[in-house]
């Protein structure tokens, strides 16, 4: 089954007097349980593609399917619902809510999903244990290291067991040891929960974890390699 399918995506930005082609006739299929890295230099189109797959940005043309459902023609509300139920996001800058504790940050998405309080607390506790943050539940983001914050962000992204996790430069703000730890965690989740991961990065070490590496340049796919993960 295909988790993500993009057909002939195009997206052009206007920058000053110049039109920048962020996506230039991009077509890809990502299978369920895939562990894919999108690699490109800055401005190569990887974040634009990730945002389009996640329904955060609409392509100028082309079609996008998530788990067989076309999403490029959905309304804002339908896209929000899709992200809430089916997609987990991990960002470069952690992006936690600063006034909430680690546990509350993880619970927040579940609260919006309407998960009952008891179940929410149980799941949040479990997922924080799973990402190695047992005992840090009540810390606020400002009291945690970058690696710990990114783990909370991962916990938040996967707590409701989404079919797809999109990560944009998830290790950019982490030291190499913490970055390796995070990638191990991603791989574990991919293997144990069969979650599909699409990771935008230009970090070679991150790419080495991928089962499939898609290289982009100037909005086009220039290479699509299936590789043995590290």
């Amino acid at each position: 089954m295909t988790a993500v399918r993009c057909v002939d995506l195009c997206k052009t930005y206007r920058q000053g007097e110049e039109d920048i082609k962020a996506l230039d006739h991009v077509s890809i299929d990502i299978a369920e349980g895939g562990f894919v890295c999108l690699s490109a230099p800055s401005g190569g189109g990887k974040t634009t593609l990730l945002n389009a797959i996640g329904g955060l940005d609409k392509p100028d043309s082309g079609e996008i399917y998530i788990a067989g459902r076309r999403i490029d023609n959905l309304s804002k509300g339908e896209l929000a619902e899709l992200r809430l139920r089916q997609i987990g996001f991990v960002f470069q800058a952690f992006n936690l809510i600063p006034v909430l504790t680690a546990r509350e940050n993880v619970e927040f998405v579940m609260q919006v999903q309407g998960v009952p309080a008891g179940e929410r607390q149980k799941l949040a506790g479990e997922i924080l244990d799973e990402v190695g943050l047992a005992g840090l539940d009540d810390r606020r983001p400002a009291d945690m290291s970058g690696g710990q914050q990114q783990r909370v962000a991962v916990a938040r992204a996967i707590v409701s067991r989404p079919e797809l996790v999109l990560a944009d430069e998830p290790t950019a703000n982490l030291d190499s040891k913490t970055a390796d730890g995070l990638m191990e965690l991603f791989r574990e989740l991919n293997e144990h929960h069969h979650t599909t991961f699409v990771i935008a990065t230009h970090d070679k070490r991150v790419m080495s974890y991928a089962k499939r590496l898609i290289r982009m340049l100037d909005g086009r796919i220039v290479d699509d390699i299936v590789q043995d993960a590290a």
Binding site: G54, L56, K76, G77, A80, E81, L82, R83, L84, R85, I87, F89, F91, N95, I97, P98, F108, V109, V112, Q113, R156
Partner: peptide, 15 residues
């Protein structure tokens, strides 16, 4: 910026 994040997590502008 924060609102952008929570919207990307699936919160609607209404919420």
């Amino acid at each position: 910026h924060e609102f952008g994040i929570v919207m990307s997590l699936g919160l609607t502008p209404g919420r």
